[in-house]
Design a binder for these strands. Structure first.
Lengths: 106, 106
DNA sequence: TCTATTATTATCACTTTTGTTAATTAAGTG
DNA sequence: CACTTAATTAACAAAAGTGATAATAATAGA
């Protein structure tokens, strides 16, 4: 699947978006600390984290039995870039936009 | 559903994302002109367009029996704003980010 | 080693999404 | 008015996503 599509898909879920926001706000957190607020089971959170990892939006680090998760700047950056590349659309410069879109294949 | 989540969901589909790109590149197009390249039936395209409309990413205009679609700048802008509000994360200014996130409820 | 802690994977049920074909709506045209 | 064009809605089947509980893996500590 195209990376940017995976990113959008990952963020299209309320639980996953709130996980990303939590990690941005609070920094690195173990998987277990993300479950309480979400109102769903630990296995469910675990799978959401897997989706976020595969979308490149979070990273995982082991510490004992814990798995510490962090938001991944590059992942969010990917979305910013996608938006940026189409930004010319609502700013009028269509020619530059066309050139930009024809250059890459995101 | 939260507007920004709807936007992300709408763009998480390859067909829908390519529809948006086509509308950005070629400008206003009738629904029928979007089906050929997509490789799916007209009814399928029609429902994708409905999703995009509900997400605020495209607008519709009637002209005879045709329905002309255009990309909607405000919709793309919503995504840019969401990204922007979290941008401080990868640029270090966490305090400003916290303030921004606590202000709205996207 | 036995047990506790933390997290993930496996299974299953339920819901949502997506596509197809058929039917319907709406606006021209002869 | 019948017919064509353009698009949408209806009904159905197949696929994917989401959550719960149960089972498994991996580390740490007595």
């Amino acid at each position: 699947m195209i990376p940017i599509l995976k990113s959008f898909a990952a963020l299209s879920d309320e639980t996953r978006m709130s996980i990303v926001d939590q990690l941005i706000l609070k920094g690195e957190l173990p998987a277990g600390d993300l479950a309480p607020g979400a109102g769903i089971s630990a296995p469910a959170i675990s799978r959401h984290l897997k989706v976020l990892r595969e979308a490149g939006l979070v990273t995982q680090r082991a510490d004992g039995t814990k798995r510490l998760y962090s938001a991944r700047p590059e992942g969010l950056r990917m979305i910013a870039d996608w938006t940026q590349s189409r930004r010319a659309f609502w700013e009028g410069g269509l020619d530059r936009l066309k050139a930009a879109l024809l250059e890459d294949d995101t």
